[in-house]
């Protein structure tokens, strides 16, 4: 036990000492790492915001009007409506009668006068469907077409073109965000590895002596890994704070605009935790790689 504490103390002490002694190199490392963490965090938050806005749009687009045939019996309609209501993919279903449809359409004076001229109501009754996911719409459209009580000439108001485009945009934005984050993480690992390698190089005599007198590899490694973790933590704290501040400003600036961005507290907190843990992990991993070369013999 005493030995473990002594090892830990030695590692912590020499990590801190090295960080201070090579303050210039350490701070340069923290700065670059911080910049990258800021970019990662920023791009993730930006992607998330765009995603949220688009999902809002998606929600608006997730409506489907199923037009019913004029000779459909009320029992059959009720039956179809209750079947849709029990479907887990569906948020809500409302029934719109021919009269309601006519009333709704009459708000446009041209249509109102056309209806007057006709003397009868050509507008069909409909079931207005609100679904959870945009991608489910095409299935409901297909299902509606196969249902006998549905108007066979114009079964639904489904517009596959707009919906699939919106879907593609969301997917692309999510992927681009993820790829940018991965690229930035890789760059940061390489930078940390080189920063640590410079630090290790300036201490090669110490490592050589440690190996000569019979210190284990992990004993040599730990101070460097702790030093990397310390750098990663500092970088994550600073850049996390900057990302948080920038996000608040962004949300405030977007307020009142057409696409207002909601301030997502849960996502932000999760992201800050991920940045902290990620900064520490990346710092540790970069150090591990940086010191490896000097331990090979």
């Amino acid at each position: 036990m005493r030995q473990i504490f002594a090892s830990l103390w030695f590692a912590l002490h020499s990590a801190g000492q090295n960080f201070r002694r090579n303050l210039g190199v350490s701070l340069a490392g923290v700065f670059t790492m911080g910049l990258i963490i800021f970019l990662v965090g920023g791009s993730l938050l930006f992607t998330h915001s765009v995603d949220t806005v688009l999902q809002g749009q998606e929600q608006n687009a997730s409506h489907l009007k199923i037009y019913l045939s004029d000779n459909a019996s009320l029992a059959a309609i009720t039956n179809f409506e209750s079947r849709l209501k029990t479907d887990p993919r569906v948020i809500s279903v409302t029934f719109e009668t021919k009269d309601q449809a006519a009333h709704q359409a009459s708000q446009n004076p041209d249509i109102a006068s056309a209806l007057n001229v006709l003397g009868s109501n050509p507008l069909p009754a409909s079931l207005n469907l609100n679904v959870r996911k945009l991608t489910d719409l095409s299935q409901f459209n297909a299902e509606a077409k196969a249902t006998p009580i549905v108007d066979s000439t114009t079964p639904t108001d489904y517009n596959s073109d707009v919906i699939s485009k919106l879907n593609t945009v969301i997917t692309v934005i999510e992927w681009v965000g993820a790829i940018i984050a991965i690229i930035l993480l890789t760059i940061s690992i390489v930078i940390i590895m080189n920063t640590i390698r410079t630090a290790v190089y300036s201490r090669r005599t110490e490592i050589e002596i440690m190996k000569l007198v019979g210190a284990t590899d992990w004993f040599v490694r730990w101070p460097f890994i702790l030093e990397g973790m310390l750098g990663g933590l500092l970088a994550a704290i600073f850049s996390g704070a900057v990302v948080f501040g920038a996000y608040r400003l962004f949300v405030q600036a977007a307020q009142g605009n057409l696409l207002s961005v909601p301030f997502d507290v849960r996502y932000t907190v999760t992201l800050l935790i991920v940045l902290l843990v990620g900064g520490v992990a990346v710092g540790a991993f970069g150090s591990f790689l940086g010191v490896r070369r000097f331990l090979s013999a």
Binding site: S7, I209, G214
Partner: peptide, 28 residues
């Protein structure tokens, strides 16, 4: 082991240089 070039840590005192060998092999 000793070498021609001593391999001492210049930022540590004589006592610290010697203690170093024990600290890194037998901590505590």
């Amino acid at each position: 082991i000793v070498f021609q070039d001593y391999k001492l840590l210049t930022r540590r005192t004589v006592a610290q240089n010697v203690a170093f060998a024990l600290q890194v092999t037998r901590p505590g």
